[in-house]
Amino acid sequence: MTELPDIHVPERPCKRPELVGEEMDGMDEVVYVDTETGSNYALNIVAATILELCDGTRTSDDITAVILGNLEADPERVRKDTQAILEEFAAYGLIRG
């Protein structure tokens, strides 16, 4: 069985500047275009908010705190979900350190 490579989430993740988001009219979704490769990524509004919060100054905990400030949810679950989303961003190359 092939082992998946370790996914490293930078301590202060930063959205790649080549990503340009377009909010879908009437939908809670944002499509990001990677202007370098032409690839597209569709994110729900929470994931898109997390991506936009990746500005190179906030840590994962900082991002979780912002989300918790705008969302009534179990803090531990939000922390885990935020970490999982950041790992996915890292795996797809949407963020860097």
Binding site: V20, E22, M24, D25, V31, V33, T35, G38, N40
Partner: peptide, 13 residues
């Protein structure tokens, strides 16, 4: 550019 195409379609549809 790909981001302009996406914007144009999103605004026109």
């Amino acid at each position: 550019p790909p981001e302009i195409m996406l914007q144009e379609l999103n605004h026109r549809i």
